[in-house]
Amino acid sequence: MGTDMGFRKGFAALLLLLAALPAKAQFRVFACEPEWAALVRELVPEADVTTATTYLQDPHYIEARPSLIAAVRRADIAVCTGASLEAGWLPMLLQRASNPAIQPGRPGLFFAADHARLHAPHDHVDRSMGDVHPEGNPHVHLAPDELPEIAGALAKRLTELEPEAAAAILGRYIRWRGDWNRLRAQWQESGEALEGQSVVVQHSSFSYLLRWLGVETAVDLEPKPGMPPSASHLSRLLTEPLLKEAAAILIASHQDRQPAEWLAERTGLPVIVVPGTVTGKAPADSLGGLITTIVSRLETTVSGASDGVL
């Protein structure tokens, strides 16, 4: 066994050496969700980015697949949401990949939620409340006022890891920040028509943006956070007085459409399906583009619907 271990170690060291030679050139990023991959690409366009999830996947339920373990092993930094969003899979990836750079408390692990003010933190949670995160709502990538903070912290972290590219990264951050402020002003303008409206949602995926726009949440298709909509909960919603105020049903692309369509059939409300995150296809291929898409879909549908009601 001793000789075998020695052989294996030697073999591993050799492979490591071979792989390390070309690998040094490129900065490698592991992004838990597409929104952070998009943000990293804005700051370091030449980075080699692996994204663990797509907009068609529920980021709470990802498996610690072999391909993801291999990607974390090679990465220089992992950029994730945090606030327990990835609690079901990220710790397993970190442990299995055993990458010394990417461990809790080390600079190679960046959590966006650490740099944002989260909505609805809880002092006390228990599971009868459903899947509630004690830290607050983790779906922070759609918060127009928090993103600049997160992007600033990410840019700072990237410059620490890539000091030779620091000036370029900071330059791109400043440009991004300017673009973001311009876009934010546009959303604010479009959002005026939306203020005071209310929508039916499924999960708290869009709640940062809705709150920012002044759009109320009428009801949630989920009986408890994280639980799939049930027939009994949907029937109960039909009698909910707040439902009458709602202008639309807003769900994300990765969610099952049947519950929303069931409710739409009985209430006549329009269903809006938008990507919950960056898709890789224009216009929703950047965070700014994504929010623009969501806001304009809401605006078209909701203002159309409310005109009809009036």
Binding site: H60, Y61, G82, A83, S84, L85, E86, A87, G88, L90, P91, L94, Q95, Q103, P104, G105, L109, F111, A113, D114, L118, P121, H122, D123, V125, R127, D131, V132, H133, P134, E135, G136, P138, P225, G226
Partner: peptide, 21 residues
């Protein structure tokens, strides 16, 4: 699974999130 308390991931989060656990 949102509020799973997982040793590796949560500790830094808990410490950074204000007034949580």
């Amino acid at each position: 699974m949102y509020n799973r308390v997982v040793p590796l991931a949560l500790i830094p989060l808990v410490m950074s999130a204000s007034g949580v656990v």
